[in-house]
Each structure stands twice: as structure tokens, then as C-alpha cells.
Design a protein around this nucleic acid. Structure first.
Length: 560
RNA sequence: GUCCCAGUAGCUCAGCUGGAUAGAGCAACAGCCUUCUAAGCUGUGGGUCGGGAGUUCGAAUCUCUCCUGGGACGCCA
């Protein structure tokens, strides 16, 4: 609001040659508190106005006048604005109390649908830290989308098909032990898969054997199908445990195999449109004009490939959900693949091809290298979660031994720490896996925010605050940085969604918590003269922390 | 070899549609619990923003180039 007012006034003073949008873009928020709350640099105007920036600043500032501007200073070529804190505080709180639930919400997504492709673990493989990224980023984006008015459809597209399962079948039949599989299914399947991978280095004929088994699977060979279904069932059971712990649900769980009998239609369609070409015995769509390598549609042995499957799935989803955006939350190593998918759809003249967006993210690295199931080098998510929970339980025992529901709180804190650890980084960056960092509960962590939340709860209780009767004129100067921070929430939500970057929200919540804790350490609330006004502000903080955490998929215990 | 992404404090990262003295957190050190939850707060030290050149009144931010790391480059997903 204050930015718009300032931009409007400056644009008016400058006259027709300067657009308000341009002026507003120039306005910045100073890093130094002694430079005020808003600043306008006059340097760009110097050339055209043929005056010194300082003189321009003087001239403009003498005309600025509004109740929200408490003081206007010129320093060098800058105009520095100090806002009327009382005015802004009251405005902020009134806006919040008008409808707390709607604070930070938007309507630009109203009537639109977003489909999210997320999580997508592979059956017979452990749920790795890598899958966690797709799962929690996708979940947070879905929540952000909802906050912006969109309908969302979360799809877990289980990796249950492909040549790798041919290899797995071959491997299991060679070395598998039924008893071990019943005891610890994923462990046993991983064991034989890893063994297969190593053995195939010595004996390349195994690769061909794997391909043959995949072909049997595609041709509905009874032995292959039975085993495959079994692998799938035991894997899904294990994944379900993790999703329950993470508190994440899906609107649709579907395996890639679902599209087996629908891919011929896709291939026919591509052929009819004259896009299919033969190349080394395989069928491809050339993308030369996009400077991309050809997209492989059918392999030389006649079997299909993931591109065919993803194309078919995209067509199916468009038909089923008529989405406005389809987000694929998938690691950035698949960038080329999604470019190819999009451009094949474009060449086939589907106007909505641009609605597909690859929300890529960096890899979870170990010693600077990609983790690989085949080499048996993967950190298991379940193990990390359990360690985080027991660490949280240990902390509770030390710091708050009388806490009720200690086990439940330990779960909320431990799981929250793991989720937040992942979401706080820009999703595009690779993350070096560190259990130690994940088990740190101080500083930039979920427990820090959760702890802050618990403090607000405690204050509100002690002060008998009633959110139906807020007092919105906050005087205390110490509250100013906090007020300025919580005001950013709507902007943060919008930006976090538009850039598909939950870390923006994660960092904002850290800011809110930090400013609250500073305030808390220096200002007495309960029993003070301003008690109810301060509590009114604290309730807004309390609400925003809980709301924000919940969007990130993290719970906020009332006590910890 | 070609293309893409990254390189900011000892470590993990913000800042990147150009703006004032480059910010947090961890780790280190020094303080703060007879007062609202110390998973907190306060302070100190720590930087050629990978190197170089260019554009600009102004560059961590834009351009070029080089170095380093990672990823992708049809019959895996």
C-alpha cells in the first residue's frame, strides 16, 4: 500500500514522462534502518532532467505529503521515507482481523486447476532422500496454489514400469529369497537389483536378459506379471508408512503401467500427424528445429519408453482435469526429457503444451556425488525421520519433561525439522545430505519456528486474549520490525507460488520468528500498559506462523 | 566434444528484473534464566562475492572470456 501511494505521488510530481509502474519498480526498501522504511533513488533521473540527483531528491521530497509518511529525508541522491508506525500498524491489524483466514490469500487462481506430478517413488526401491524433495516441494506448492485460489490435483505417479523391472525380475529369479522378501521386501529387492547391476558389468548378456523379461512383462507373461504385482504391493505398503508420517496425501495414486494399453493411441496419433520417423530401428520424433535431440517413442525391440508413457499421461490428464497448469516436480536431471515432451506436444499442435512446467530441483548429493540405488548408495528417508523423532524426544525429556503428548510432539518436531531442512533451500540448488544438519534444532530450523509459535500460544493464554476483541493501535516502537515483517505475508505467498519456490515462504517464517523473538526478549507483554494491543499483534504472528507452517506441510504444536 | 546449472564468511545458505557500509544460521569466543517456554536473546571475530575484462553515475547482480564442480546428451526413469 505505502509503495503504491509513494509511486503515485512521485509519478504525479514528475509528470507524464514517467509511468507509475516504472517509479514503483525503482522504490526499494533500505537495508539500514536509519535510511527509513522506503527509498527512492534519483540517479536515473539526473540525465534527462539535467540536474543533480541530490537536487532532484530535494525537489521531489518537498512535494511529498501523506498521513502515512511521517518523515521525508534526502540523503545523497536518495529520498528516504519514514512511515507513520501507528498508522501502518493499525492498518495491518485491521486488515488481518477483518478475516484472519483470508490474510495472505489471493484470488488470481480462482476457477483454475493445477495438476501436480509429485513424489513418484519407484517400486522395489527404497524411498530415498531424493524422493523426499519431490514430495515435500510438491505438497507445499499444492498448498500455495490453494492459498492463491487454485483447485489442485496431487498425483503420485508411481514408477512401476520400465526396463529396470525386467532387470529386477531377472535378478530376483536368479538370486532372490522368498523368505527375505516377505520379511523386508524392499531390502531384499534392492539387494538383488544391486547384485544384478554389478554382475552385468562382468557379463553384459544379463542386460539383454533383463530386456527380455521386460518384454515378457509387456506381453502379460503370467510369471512376470504375478511377481511384478507382488513387488508392487509390498512396496506400496512401505511407502504408505512414510506418507503417513509426513502427513501427505494424494488425490490420485497411479502407476505408469496404467498407460500400457493406451500408448498405442498416442503412437498412432503421432504417426497420423506425420511426426514419427524411423531411426536405427526405433521410432522417434525429431526436434531439430528446437535444437533438441530426437525424442524416442518406440524402441527397436518394439517396447515403449518413458517418453511415450509421459506423453500419454499428459494427454490423459488434460482430458480428465482440463488443467491450467501441470507441474512436474521432478529432479533437474530430467530437464531434457521434459523439454522433449513439451515440444513433441507442440509439434502435435496441442495448444496447451506450454501449460506443462517442469519444476526441477537439485539433487541430494553424498560426498558431492549423485546417490545411486544401483550402487547401493542411498540414505533412507525412514531412517532419517526416525532419528529426527528420537532426537526431538530426547530434547523434550531434557527441556520440558512434563510435556503432555510428548511422543506426538516429538513426531511433529522431528518430522517438521526434516521437511523444513529440505524446503528452506532454493529448490534448484543441489543439497549435500547431512544428517547432522537435519538433526540441528536451532537457528534456521522448523523447531525454531515451532518453538516461537508455542511461545505465542503461551502469551495469549497468560494474557487471556480474545481474538474477537482485538485492540489495533499498537504504540510500542519495539514492535515495528515485527509489524513490517508480517505485512509482507501476502506478497510472499504470491511470489512463492509464482516462482514455484516454497523456500521464499520458509525464509519469511524464519524472519517472522526472529523478529518476534527479539521483541519477546526485550519487551514485557503480559501485565504491560499496552497488553491487549501487543497481544493483538502477537495473535496475528501466531496465526501467520501456523498458517505458514501448515502450507509447508509442517505442524505446529501448542506446547513444546 | 556439445548444451544446461552452480561457484558469496571455516561450513550451510540469502541477496541476483543493477543502487547507500554484501546479510542470516551453524561452528568459535564472551555475556544473559528470583521477570511472559534459554529449541531463546545480546555482543565479538570472520568476505579479493571463483579469476580477468567490459557496459554504467553505480556491478555480487548485466555481457564476454577463462578456471573449478555438477548434471544431461535415443533404446533407464
Amino acid at each position: 500500500m505505502e509503495k503504491q501511494i509513494l509511486a503515485l505521488q512521485i509519478a504525479h510530481i514528475l509528470g507524464e514522462d514517467y509511468q507509475r509502474d516504472w517509479v514503483q519498480q525503482q522504490i526499494e526498501t533500505p537495508k539500514q534502518p536509519n535510511h527509513g522504511d522506503l527509498a527512492f533513488p534519483c540517479f536515473p533521473l539526473a540525465k534527462t532532467l539535467k540536474k543533480s540527483p541530490h537536487l532532484i531528491a530535494e525537489e521531489i521530497s518537498s512535494h511529498l505529503k501523506h498521513p502515512i509518511f511521517k518523515e521525508v529525508q534526502t540523503v545523497g541522491g536518495y529520498i528516504n521515507i519514514f512511515l507513520d508506525q501507528k498508522f501502518v500498524a493499525e492498518h495491518t491489524l485491521k486488515q488481518f482481523y477483518q478475516d484472519p483466514e483470508a490474510y495472505g490469500a489471493h484470488e488470481f487462481g480462482k476457477g483454475k486447476t493445477v495438476v501436480l506430478d509429485m513424489s513418484a517413488p519407484n517400486i522395489a526401491k527404497p524411498f530415498s532422500m531424493g524422493h523426499l524433495r519431490s514430495t515435500v516441494i510438491g505438497n507445499a506448492l499444492a498448498n500455495l496454489a490453494q492459498k492463491c485460489g487454485y483447485e489442485t490435483v496431487k498425483i503420485n505417479y508411481i514408477g512401476d514400469y520400465g526396463t529396470q523391472f525386467g532387470k529386477l525380475l531377472a535378478a530376483y529369479l536368479k538370486w532372490g529369497e522368498e523368505e527375505s522378501l516377505k520379511q523386508k521386501p524392499i531390502k531384499e529387492l534392492t539387494r538383488v537389483y544391486v547384485k544384478f547391476h554389478h554382475a552385468s558389468k562382468e557379463d553384459p548378456s544379463l542386460i539383454e536378459e533383463g530386456r527380455e523379461w521386460f518384454k515378457k512383462l509387456e506381453n502379460n507373461d503370467e510369471e512376470a506379471v504375478t511377481l511384478w504385482k507382488w513387488f508392487k504391493a509390498v512396496s506400496l505398503e512401505e511407502f504408505e508408512k512414510i506418507y503417513k508420517l509426513l502427513g501427505i496425501t494424494f488425490d490420485l495414486v497411479r502407476g505408469e503401467a496404467y498407460y500400457n494399453d493406451k500408448m498405442d493411441g498416442t503412437i498412432d496419433m503421432l504417426r497420423e500427424k506425420g511426426l514419427l520417423e524411423k531411426s536405427d530401428g526405433a521410432q522417434v520424433v525429431r526436434l531439430d528445429e528446437e535444437a533438441l535431440p530426437p525424442c524416442l517413442i518406440r524402441k527397436s525391440n518394439g517396447t515403449t519408453i518413458y517418453a511415450t508413457r509421459d506423453l500419454t499421461a499428459a494427454l490423459d490428464r488434460k482430458q480428465t482435469y482440463d488443467f491450467d497448469e501441470a507441474l512436474y516436480v521432478v529432479g533437474h536431471e530430467q530437464t531434457l526429457h521434459f523439454q522433449q515432451i513439451k515440444h513433441v506436444l507442440k509439434k502435435a499442435e496441442f495448444s496447451w503444451a506450454d501449460q506443462l512446467k517442469h519444476i526441477s530441483f537439485g539433487m541430494m548429493l553424498q560426498d558431492g556425488k549423485k546417490m545411486s540405488t544401483r550402487q547401493g548408495k542411498t540414505v533412507l528417508l525412514e531412517q532419517a525421520l526416525q532419528e529426527a523423532i528420537s532426537q526431538a524426544a530426547k530434547n523434550i525429556k531434557e527441556k520440558n519433561p512434563d510435556l503432555k503428548n510428548a511422543q506426538k510432539v516429538a513426531e511433529q518436531v522431528g518430522v517438521g525439522a526434516v521437511i523444513f531442512h529440505d524446503l528452506k533451500h532454493d529448490r534448484r540448488n543441489d543439497v549435500e545430505f547431512s544428517l547432522e544438519d537435519m538433526l540441528t534444532f536451532e537457528g534456521h530450523t522448523a523447531p525454531y519456528i515451532q518453538y516461537t509459535y508455542a511461545r505465542t500460544v503461551s502469551l495469549l493464554e497468560k494474557g487471556n486474549f480474545d481474538h474477537k476483541h482485538p485492540v489495533t493501535d499498537v504504540q510500542a516502537e519495539a514492535a515495528w520490525p515485527l509489524i513490517k515483517t508480517i505485512r509482507l505475508f501476502p506478497e510472499v505467498i504470491e511470489k512463492a507460488y509464482q516462482e514455484y519456490d516454497p523456500s521464499k515462504l520458509a525464509r519469511h517464517l524464519l524472519d517472522v520468528a526472529r523478529h518476534f523473538n527479539k521483541f519477546y526478549a526485550h519487551t514485557k507483554v503480559v501485565g504491560s500498559e499496552e497488553e491487549q494491543a501487543l497481544l493483538s499483534l502477537i495473535y496475528a504472528v501466531n496465526y501467520q506462523l501456523k498458517d505458514g507452517l501448515s502450507i509447508l506441510g509442517i505442524q505446529a504444536p501448542e506446547n513444546m
